[in-house]
Simulated assay, not measured.
Amino acid sequence: MNLQEKIALIADYYGLNIQICKLGEEGAELGAVIAKKYVLIQSGELAQKYDYPAAQREFGHVDFSISEELADVLLVARQIEYLMLRDEKLAEYIERIMNAKAARQIERIKEGRKQ
Rank of each mutant, 00 (worst) to 15 (best):
Ile34Thr: 06
Lys37Ile: 09
Asp51Ala: 09
Leu40His: 07
Ala55Gln: 13
Ala35Ile: 02
Ser43Leu: 08
Gln42Tyr: 07
Ser43Ala: 03
Glu68Val: 06
Tyr52Met: 15
Lys36Gly: 05
Lys49Tyr: 08
Gln56Trp: 11
Ala47Arg: 03
Ala28Tyr: 06
Arg57Ile: 07
Ala28Ile: 03
Phe64Pro: 03
Gly27His: 06
Ile41Val: 01
Lys36Trp: 03
Gly27Asp: 00
Gln48Met: 10
Gln48Lys: 13
Gln42Ile: 05
Ala47Ile: 07
Gly44Ala: 14
Val62Ser: 04
Tyr50Gln: 13
Lys36Asn: 12
Ala28Asn: 11
Lys49Asn: 04
Leu30Ala: 00
His61Trp: 15
Tyr50Pro: 01
Phe59Pro: 10
Leu40Cys: 06
Ile66His: 01
Tyr38Thr: 14
Ile34Met: 10
Ile41Asn: 00
Gly27Arg: 08
Ala35Lys: 08
Gln42Ser: 12
Pro53Gly: 06
Lys49Ser: 02
Lys36Leu: 10
Val39Asn: 09
Arg57Leu: 05
Val39Glu: 12
Ser65Cys: 08
Gly44Val: 02
Lys36Pro: 03
Leu46Arg: 10
Glu45Tyr: 05
Gln42Asp: 12
Ser43Tyr: 08
Ala32Met: 09
Asp51His: 11
Ala54Ser: 11
Phe64Cys: 03
Leu46His: 10
Ile66Arg: 03
Gly44His: 12
Ser67Leu: 09
Gly60Phe: 00
Tyr52His: 14
Asp63Lys: 01
Lys49Gln: 11
Pro53Val: 01
Tyr52Glu: 15
Glu45Ser: 04
Val62Ile: 13
Gly31Glu: 00
Ser43Lys: 10
Pro53Thr: 08
Tyr52Val: 15
Ser65Leu: 14
Gln56Asp: 14
Glu26Pro: 02
Ala55Lys: 11
Pro53Gln: 13
His61Tyr: 15
Gly60Tyr: 00
Val39His: 09
Arg57Gln: 08
Ile41Ser: 07
Tyr38Val: 10
Ala47Phe: 02
Gly44Phe: 14
Leu46Gly: 08
Ile41Asp: 06
His61Val: 14
Ala32Gln: 15
Ser43Trp: 00
Glu58Ala: 09
Gly31His: 03
Ala28Thr: 06
Val33Gln: 12
Lys36Val: 07
Val39Tyr: 10
Lys49Arg: 12
Phe59Gly: 10
Ala32Gly: 14
Gln56Pro: 02
Gln56Phe: 11
Ile41Glu: 02
Asp63Trp: 04
Lys37Phe: 14
Ala32Pro: 01
Ala32Thr: 10
Ser67Asp: 14
Arg57Val: 02
Gly60His: 09
Ala54Pro: 00
Gln56Tyr: 13
Val39Ile: 10
Ala28Lys: 09
Ala28Met: 05
Tyr50Cys: 09
Glu29Thr: 01
Glu45Gln: 04
Phe59Thr: 13
Arg57Asn: 07
Glu26Val: 00
Ile66Phe: 06
Ala35His: 09
Val39Pro: 01
Leu40Thr: 00
Glu68Gln: 07
Gln42His: 11
Ala54Val: 11
Gly27Val: 01
Leu40Trp: 01
Gln48Thr: 07
Ser67Met: 08
Gly60Glu: 12
